[in-house]
């Protein structure tokens, strides 16, 4: 059964490549706009040894990772502090509900004029955009910690810190991890967007803008998008795998109650 699944998936990918190849080769769509799949895949393969492209990818990932890590630390800490001070928590909730829907990319022009270095610009924007999902998931998860578990700890004479470390944080961790995964995807969107707007040959977005301004090379653009997609897929898969490993107890429990 598992094998049938993989075979079908492979057939789907092969079929899509063949169709994309054919519509372009037969002239069903203009090959100048949509180059044949084989050409795009070949360009994508060439990009692996293109040092310029690799530097761009590294630049993008550096800013993304920096912003994401910073956001994780700050948002989780903020979530813990807010959750332990109810009067502050109540007032914060409405601020969070207001700030969260603000499209982070609206801040790109501001960040560009405020920060001098492109990496700083990108990192601060990723930090801003990534903080919200993590903070919100932390807040909700800490609020929903099973009170029986907390009271059990307290009945054995444990103090506030022990309850936090041994009960609240572990039981909130899976939801925080989900927040980080969402934040990772959002961060990737923001970092590429910033590069596209800044356009100064910086990162993957800069690379794509250059290929566009140079008369338009759809094959290179699509090759870049293929890598961006694979990268996104890789990041998501890695995070999901880590969650599965770290929170096996959680998946077992939710499966049992579902």
């Amino acid at each position: 059964m598992r094998r049938a699944h993989i075979l079908r998936g492979a057939a789907g990918v092969a079929g899509a490549v063949v169709v994309a190849e054919l519509v372009s080769r037969t002239g069903l769509v203009d090959p100048d706009s949509l180059p044949p799949a084989s050409v795009v895949l070949w360009r994508a393969a060439e990009l692996v040894v293109d040092t310029e492209f690799l530097t761009d990818v590294a630049n993008t990932l550096k800013a993304w990772l920096g912003g994401l890590l910073l956001a994780t630390v700050v948002a989780v800490a903020a979530g813990v502090v807010l959750s332990s001070t109810p009067w502050l928590n109540r007032a914060t909730r409405i601020v969070v509900e207001f700030m969260r829907p603000i499209p982070s990319v609206a801040l790109i022009p501001l960040a560009i004029v405020t920060f001098s270095s492109p990496t700083e610009t990108k990192m601060s924007l990723v930090f801003y955009a990534a903080s919200w999902p993590i903070l919100i998931n932390t807040l909700y998860a800490l609020r929903d910690v099973d009170p029986v578990a907390k009271e059990t700890m307290r009945s054995f004479g444990f103090g506030k810190t022990s309850v936090l470390v041994r009960v609240s944080l572990p039981s909130a961790a899976p939801f925080v991890a989900t927040g980080v995964r969402i934040a990772a995807a959002v961060g990737l969107v923001v970092v590429v967007s910033t590069e596209l707007v800044a356009g100064a040959g910086e990162g993957v977005g800069g690379y794509l803008m250059e290929t566009q301004s140079g008369g338009g090379r759809p094959d290179l653009m699509l090759a870049g998008a293929v890598w961006a997609g694979l990268l996104g897929l890789l990041i998501n898969t890695a995070l999901v795998a880590m969650e599965r490993r770290a929170f096996r107890w959680h998946t077992v429990r939710t499966a049992a109650t579902a």
């Binding site: 998936g9 653009m221 997609g229 897929l233």
Partner: peptide, 26 residues
């Protein structure tokens, strides 16, 4: 669903802004 699964996973993993230059060209 099984045939399309890898394509869907790939498609949703592309950060949409990366396609803007391509869409501008075509």
């Amino acid at each position: 669903g099984e045939i399309l699964d890898p394509l869907l996973q790939f498609g949703r993993s592309i950060p949409p802004p990366t396609l803007i230059p391509f869409f501008i060209v075509i």
